[in-house]
Amino acid sequence: MPFPHLLSYSRTRTTSVERPEPDTLRAACRLQDNLMEAEVEITVRLPDLDITAVQSRVLRDERGLCPGGLEGLENAVGVRIGPGMAKIIKGLVGDDFPCPQLVFMVEECCHGVILYFTKDELRAVPEDEDEAREHFARMIRKNIRLYNRCAAFAPGSSITEGIDPPSPHTQS
């Protein structure tokens, strides 16, 4: 080993969403890094987007923080994906849950579900630059919580020009 003092670390995390039935979505998050390998899968019922099942599997855990058979994640069953979900999921799973990475992966699955729907919206964006800008501006006006959620929607961007920022607490 020529450079033993150098730390080598890599992480791959992927989230995928499938729709096995018209009224069901299944989102899976897979994590693999030097310390851990795990999978979390949630099942979501449409149209309410409520979580009907949560499953997790820890395949490798070098630090011993995430032993098999952990209870708590299933408390997220019944939560509806939407504003405030992260706070609700964390609150239901509990602060003392020993494996925060798994909780994060549940949230990643939820975000994956949101993106599943956003994808079609983004495909509908016109190619013309001005029309595209107006399309995004309409998206923000329609849902002001998108304001400042990414660089493109940040104050000062041409997309947000003329749009009043929401009150700081709108996004709570």
Partner: peptide, 23 residues
């Protein structure tokens, strides 16, 4: 229904009748 238009009601297929069944 805060934020439910993030996706668009039409895409979710959420109708008032279905929403009435929410817990």
């Amino acid at each position: 229904f805060r934020g439910f238009l993030t996706f668009g009601v039409d895409k979710l297929g959420l109708t008032p009748e279905k929403a009435m069944q929410r817990k």
